[in-house]
Amino acid sequence: MREWLQLFRSQTASATFILLLTFYLLGGGEIFSLMGLALIVASLLIHYSTFGQNSLNDFLLGYDKEDPHKKHHPLVSGKIKPEQAIKVVNVMLFLACLYCIILALHGANPTLALISSFLGYVFGNWYNSGFSKVSLLKPIPITLAFTFIGLYAYFLSAKELTTLAILCTLYVALTMLFQIGIEGELKDYKTKEVNILHKISKDTFATLGVILKIVNLLVGLYIATLLWATLHPVLRITIVMISFLTIVASLFIMRYLFNYGLIVYETCRKCRKYVVRYCALMEILTIYYLLIVLIPEIGLVNVLFMMILGIVYFVAMNKINWGTLVAPMV
């Protein structure tokens, strides 16, 4: 079972169910309801099947075989046979699609939910099934996939898009662009795996990363001003301080990432584990920042529930899969 959880990259599923639950709540849904619980199951099915497909295709296309950091992965080590993985992943993809269709038909706007889920599947499958690893457009399809999956959850509880939902969609898109286009490339830099960093200069890459993350957080700050402007002055000061500290912390982590990912990493491959750890911290910081900003809209209890569930799940799965607490061996 552990090998299959590694194949599905189960440790990161908390980000997927937080994404779906957040958009579901934005549309007016309730976590502690039949649909809310069903959506958590859907998010796990979506994550396990699509990330399993990505792991399988990366192996079949030869990327993981050439990466020394992935020699312990179940397909590379031979603990799972490719033939087995193909059958299991295809069955899970079918079940995930069927399950999402059934949920969509019971949603507030079945048509838009079905369209969003279909587009999420199309872009996700496009990314997983051989999209160029060195194309500068590489982050686009997976960004669109996650964006539409979020909208799928939104239309399970809402009939139409609001300004707030559009802003949150933009925030998620910018977050995914940074995670895939910047963090993902840093993590695999200096391995034999093909990498965008082999095509552009390090200075250009670092500048793009800083600009992208600042814009990402500023969108979150704008959402905060819309939601917290009419609240008590003490609460407004609180969110301003959280926003400021989040941006400062993010810039500090980015400096660490770029220093170790692009300078020290060139001469010391052991530094990769620190890059992975800081990437994980950046992802948690960015996700939880949006949750805190959305407290006036989706409720403190819901936010605390998602935060606690996310941390407990992430730490537990890292321990089960890789024997670590924060940095998975990916």
Rank of each mutant, 00 (worst) to 15 (best):
E3N: 12
L7P: 03
S10L: 08
S10A: 14
Q11V: 00
T12R: 00
G36P: 14
L44M: 12
L45D: 13
T50F: 02
F51H: 07
N54W: 01
N57D: 02
G62R: 03
E66P: 14
H69L: 11
G78W: 01
I80V: 13
K81R: 14
L93P: 09
L98V: 15
I101C: 07
I102G: 15
P110F: 11
L114D: 11
I115V: 14
L119S: 06
N125I: 09
W126F: 12
L137G: 01
K138G: 01
I140V: 15
I142P: 06
T143W: 04
T143D: 01
A145L: 08
A145C: 14
F146H: 00
A158L: 11
L164W: 04
A165F: 11
C168Q: 00
C168V: 11
L177H: 11
G181N: 08
I182N: 04
I182M: 05
K192S: 10
K192A: 12
I200C: 13
G209E: 00
V210W: 11
N216I: 02
L218G: 12
V219K: 07
V219M: 02
Y222H: 00
L226P: 00
T230S: 15
H232C: 05
I239V: 15
I242H: 06
T246A: 14
T246Q: 09
I247W: 05
S250Y: 04
Y256Q: 06
N259E: 04
N259F: 04
L262A: 04
T267K: 10
C271R: 14
K273H: 02
Y274K: 08
V275K: 11
V276A: 08
R277Q: 06
Y278L: 01
A280P: 03
M282H: 08
I292A: 15
P296M: 11
G299Q: 10
L300W: 13
M306H: 01
I308C: 14
L309P: 12
L309R: 03
I320F: 13
A327V: 11
